[in-house]
Design a protein around this nucleic acid. Structure first.
Lengths: 354, 354
DNA sequence: CAGGGTTACTGAAACGTATAAGTGAATGCA
DNA sequence: TGCATTCACTTATACGTTTCAGTAACCCTG
């Protein structure tokens, strides 16, 4: 490994000068700077980010911690955030927690240790207090945390609004008995204040029904153990076989909806003829399914911009004032409290709805 | 940030003792070790990986560098590798190069700098020499590089074999005029020695045809600019509209195949009645498409195991002998030359083929 | 040409960790 | 009792970088 010392020796200057020269600090003469850079290039020098971030606390990279990558929505989000961050000049390090508490902790540990200047995090098992303890003052932006953080900025997905629009659309287009497929119904009662994305989506469905004067049958909430396409396919077939009649399916996300589409077809149910199906997220796969999936499209680009911009601003600000106020509280800005941003969504009607 | 020094102060021992204690080195008494660990837990200590890896050159993490994440195959691979590595006790840091040479370089730079102990890399723009220059002696495993590396271990996808099997299946089941959709045909001539996965898949198709005594029409190779589902959908419609007749489609991957399925349906072509379609990769989405996609399923679990195990073995070995032979050559083992492993595949016949 | 200011560089001290080398004290054995 | 050995711990150094505090050499100005 070639270090600054090697360059210094080869260029006949001190190691400090090399550092200054490579960072274009105006304290070195242009001729020296040019010579140093030339030598650095010749020796194929690349900086040791580890040492840099140990010393300066900055690495030029941010972390992105998602629960799982192997879902179209997740991987698209990771892709979009990583692209946008690259445009802003920072690299993104992606990791998945697999919904395991332990790996969520140890990943944050890695991140904390100044490998990343900050982190965009979709929390699952950890509370905001635990996150703060792990992050130890590093800036973070939370993606749709289930409770509104008093410490960290967050970016929310419009679960309620999107679901309300989707359900309303079905009701306005000939559906009278829609069912809802997803998860988290058990927790519904008494949890009115939650920001949990899943519960928000359920709430949007319920409100849309209520606004039309429909009192939803308890049977119309289909609990899915796993949010996977093949699992949703099997589940909807079971629902059909069990007998409760329905003429519309509002799905908690597109991954589920694709399975529903397929399961309905397995049973010879025509979509949208007999049953309308609508999803949530707007993943690319929905565009080419048979029939093409109507859905609530989230503005992922906007989500990425919000998360990255907010985080970079925090990182920048944290770098400025190293006063006493920048200590334990993590990131409470002087404007008072963290920002909570909401992503836009719009209805995309394709072939799976009437 | 709480450091070993803080623990040392609180426990009334030296920082070195803390380090020994936390690493369960037998040089400290069990009572001291217990006390140190207790204090560490109380102070909510988490190690600074940056400092650790600066000093020891080990971080306990490996890098995974893919070209793009927002494809089912890629994200599934990332997920599988990351899971398997976690089982083996190492964290995986995932990054995407977006096919840009510059980000491929700068990502390797980040990785090189001892943030990762090694890297699993799907190279696109960089040659093996350039990779070596960037990696500077760190172990790496290449995923389906286009030329057989003389320096690094690699894991190959059975492009030729899989494609041969897929094509043979179509030919054996009533197809006489299959076409092939993919990319890289321009480069075919004169590039016989390449390991390039795309070209291998083309070659498998050609050989299967030749073995049946069919001389493929030049028109039967459909060049796709982008490997995206909607793009493949549009392209196959153009092919139909242009007129060349075909009764089978061998696709370079499943992402393309899903678009082909949809495009054929758009034009009222029955699958598999009039045309059989077969994909490559075995992504989960193919299971629930309409019709469900026949494909060549790659053993991704095996691929992950091969890549991670090979890399970890290299890392372990590199740690052992710090002799003179471990220097410039990067990783040439004493058994002579790097390993080149090939992933298994099998035909998965579902509904899109006769 | 003394005094002060600028320019261009160097020396040295960190950052938090791992680990080799050193140091007493306790122990073992003759 | 004396000397070597082990034990349990400490001191000190290094990893590669950033950055602060020097320090010569030079140029003005009066």
């Amino acid at each position: 490994m070639v270090t600054m010392r090697d360059i210094a020796a080869a260029a006949g200057v001190s190691q400090a000068t090399v550092s200054y020269a490579l960072h274009d600090k105006p304290v070195v003469s242009t001729t020296t700077a040019r010579k140093v850079k030339e030598v650095a290039r010749r020796l194929n020098y690349s900086p040791n980010i580890t040492a840099r971030s140990l010393k300066s606390g900055r690495s030029g990279a941010i972390g992105l911690v998602l629960q799982e990558l192997d879902k179209p929505y997740s991987s698209h989000l990771a892709d979009t955030i990583s692209r946008y961050a690259l445009d802003r000049g920072v690299q993104t390090i992606i990791q998945q927690t697999l919904y395991r508490r332990k790996s969520e902790t140890s990943i944050l540990e890695l991140v904390t240790s100044s490998i990343c200047d900050g982190v965009i995090l979709a929390p699952s098992k950890l509370t905001e207090g635990q996150i703060r303890d792990q992050l130890n003052g590093k800036p973070a932006v939370l993606l749709s945390p289930s409770t509104r953080s008093t410490i960290y900025d967050s970016v929310y997905t419009p679960g309620f609004e999107g679901s309300y629009q989707a359900t309303s659309y079905l009701l306005a287009h000939g559906c009278n008995r829609p069912i809802f497929m997803g998860r988290g119904f058990r927790a519904r009662t008494g949890q009115r204040q939650t920001c949990d994305s899943a519960l928000q989506r359920v709430a949007g469905f319920e409100r849309a029904m209520a606004d039309r004067g429909i009192d939803p049958d308890p049977d119309c909430f289909i609990e899915l153990e796993k949010w996977e396409t093949p699992f949703a396919r099997r589940t909807i077939r079971e629902v059909i076989d069990r007998g409760p009649s329905f003429d519309g399916v509002v799905c908690m996300n597109d991954t589920i909806a694709l399975g529903v589409l397929r399961g309905l077809r397995d049973r010879g149910v025509e979509v949208p003829g007999q049953v309308s199906v609508i999803g949530f997220d707007g993943i690319g796969e929905g565009e080419c399914s048979v029939p093409a999936l109507s859905t609530v499209t989230l503005d992922i680009e906007q989500c990425a911009r919000m998360a990255v911009d907010t985080l970079l601003e925090r990182i920048g600000r944290a770098g400025q004032g190293k006063g006493p106020e920048g200590g334990q509280d993590g990131q409470l800005g002087r404007e008072g409290g963290p920002a909570h941003l909401k992503v836009d969504c719009r209805l995309t009607i394709r072939e799976s709805t009437r």
